[in-house]
């Protein structure tokens, strides 16, 4: 089933000859419960993508430990699915083949896998596009196909690296609701990296705030809404209070008022 994430004192230092080493992450610890949805926000270059890549096994640690489902992460795991900033579809494959690519790579293409991808494509509104090529689809549709590719693997851990950053505001909002609905069905452990504070608050059960380099966690906020999120969630006064509070970490002058505003939420 779905897996919990345990990050203990993770440290990532990039060192190249002739260049002073940069510390991307330092002494970072984070827990994500199995089936949970945690959003991570932070300024550019705070190491949040490095954290995600480390959890996914694409980036080695120089210190500390990361465990997924109890096992120490030593490299990419088949049970972990990624979504990147770009859809990253392969232009020489049609949408169906793109979504089936992980199974072909793993040599685990079964009829169940096919039918799961077919029903996922239906659910995200791409049923009629399975034989189209990526360049015939809009950016939002491509990103939806990328969701299908990730979820088709029936992953135990879903790692999302600013997946909607390149979309226009309206498409992005729709994708947020789609993602929430999908997560509610699959209840897969999900970590979302994002630049957008409203997106983080809308989707996460928890929002983790990271500071600038070296990346550390400065706040970890429980979001007081149920698992189902919709447009009404954004209308809730607590929503804007939390957003303002988080924003306070990035806009210095608003710090005090944001801290005060959140006091209401926490009471």
């Amino acid at each position: 089933m779905t897996e919990r994430i345990e990050v203990r004192d993770a440290e990532v230092v990039f060192s190249r000859r002739g260049v002073p080493p940069t510390t991307a992450l330092s002494g970072l610890s984070l827990d994500v419960e199995a089936g949970g949805f945690v959003s991570v926000v932070g300024p550019s270059g705070c190491g949040k993508t490095t954290l995600l890549r480390a959890i996914g096994g694409l980036q080695g640690l120089t210190g500390g430990e990361i465990r997924v489902g109890g096992d120490t992460v030593a490299g990419p795991r088949r049970t972990t699915a990624f979504m990147f900033q770009q859809p990253t579809l392969l232009p020489w494959m049609n949408i169906a083949d793109n979504c089936l690519a992980p199974a072909r790579i793993h040599r685990t293409l079964t009829p169940e896998y096919r039918s799961r991808v077919t029903s996922l494509l239906e659910r995200v509104g791409l049923a009629d596009f399975h034989d189209k090529y990526p360049n015939e689809l809009s950016g939002g549709m491509q990103q939806r196909a990328a969701i299908v590719r990730a979820l088709g693997q029936d992953p135990e851990l879903l790692l999302l690296d600013e997946p909607f950053g390149a979309l226009d505001a309206m498409t992005r909002e729709q994708m947020n609701f789609d993602l929430n609905a999908i997560w509610n069905r699959a209840k897969v452990t999900t970590l979302l990296i994002t630049h957008s504070i409203p997106e983080a608050v809308l989707l996460g059960q928890r929002v983790v705030v990271m500071s600038s380099r070296p990346g550390r966690i400065v706040d970890d906020i429980e979001i007081p809404f149920g698992p189902m999120r919709d447009a009404e969630t954004m209308g809730d006064p607590r929503f804007s209070q939390i957003v303002a509070h988080v924003r306070g970490y990035f806009v210095k002058s608003q710090n005090v008022s944001a801290e005060r505003s959140l006091a209401h939420v926490r009471d």
């Binding site: 890549r53 694409l58 990419p76 972990t80 990147f84 392969l90 020489w92 690519a101 793993h106």
Partner: peptide, 26 residues
């Protein structure tokens, strides 16, 4: 070759041969 596509193949634990034939060559 697009770095994010390489990341994708690595994240899928693709073998060296699979990366060559299915990603680098195309």
């Amino acid at each position: 070759t697009d770095k994010s596509r390489l990341d994708l193949f690595r994240s899928m634990s693709a073998s060296k041969w699979q990366i060559w034939s299915r990603l680098l060559l195309p």
